[in-house]
Design a protein around this nucleic acid. Structure first.
Lengths: 176, 176
DNA sequence: GCAGAAAACTTGGCTATGTCAACTATTTAG
DNA sequence: CTAAATAGTTGACATAGCCAAGTTTTCTGC
């Protein structure tokens, strides 16, 4: 292995340590909320998927939809995959949400298709409030940065995301 | 709040999502090892602190040492703080390590100062093996990147660490 | 359109992870 | 010397999250 790769790996490890600590700090926001950390993540994930906010009436979840990468696939399993969580665990969280009136299953005439979830107004409100809290903390955290540094940081994060995406994607292809 | 700050916060959130997923992938390395994720983190932390590998005989842990930021402070509490874990929890992990012969408490002539830990040869071996596994995974992950990209990534991580350090540090000062 | 495969859902049981409160021992500050 | 901090220690407890096994629903090949 070339030297620069060793250096890179070392740098990633160092950064990992730093960022893990930072995430720990930011997560406190959620711990002070009415939801657990994972519940919050699930809530965010529900909000991120338009298909779950406003499900297409009668939308098919079959081969075609999947091929087109439509976001209409069943909720629990998809969220579990996205967040790397156990499916059973996610189901329980979703049921808790449902019981709290945050989500609803707008089942059309076809009762079987019970899996498509959507956020209720109440769920959307909960999400918005969580987002606001998280934003407030991030604003506080980045308050010390100058305007130039802020822009620099944004640019780096974007580039970094792109690089990591490439890496992760090709890693996935190799070892599925 | 200026527009660029909102953009920055959004970018951070996006990056957070990506990186959280990445960390989840990398953590699998440890889950497949003989240690749990947290145990592995504690082991790494022990290895990171030279004071714990080779404690200075008779080293003082008092006011002076603290003022000079010497790394001779008691093990458990320090590790707990660094990793944001409960002290009692850390103690138990450390005892488990001790029982497995990974660490030892080399108490000097002063019996009272029973807190300084060090890794045994066996502990060091365990750590080395874990590091190797983690390195292997990181190498695989970054294999798809070109040499130029690797260097670019290293540079960005360093710069990013510096920016985040600044932010976190001044955040701590404001709200201790 | 039907049989079997694949994928999603669901549940119970379990371990690891982590919290909390209480108490003791030691160290530091005044 | 005394107070207050700081560390360590322990038990009891709660939660998070995984696993395996079973059920239901959807997809695929014929």
């Amino acid at each position: 292995m070339p030297t620069d790769r060793k250096a890179l790996i070392n740098d990633i490890r160092r950064f990992n340590r730093l960022y893990t600590g930072l995430i720990g700090l930011l997560d406190e926001t959620f711990l002070h909320s009415a939801y657990t950390l994972t519940e919050a993540r699930v809530l965010f994930e529900l909000g991120r998927r338009p298909g779950h906010i406003a499900p297409v009436a009668g939308g098919k979840t079959g081969f075609l939809a999947r091929a087109l990468q439509l976001d209409l696939a069943p909720a629990a399993s998809e969220i579990a995959r996205a967040l790397q969580l156990d499916a059973g665990y996610v189901i329980r969280i979703l049921r808790k949400f449902s019981a709290a009136g945050l989500t609803e299953t707008r089942s059309g005439p076809d009762v079987m298709r019970r899996r498509i979830l959507s956020l209720t107004q109440r769920g959307l409100a909960a999400l918005t409030s969580l987002q606001a809290a998280a934003d407030r903390d991030l604003a506080r955290l980045t308050a010390a940065l100058g305007d130039e540094e802020a822009v620099e940081l944004s640019d780096m994060l974007a580039r970094l995301s792109s690089l990591l995406d490439t890496a992760v994607a090709s890693d996935r292809l190799e070892m599925p």
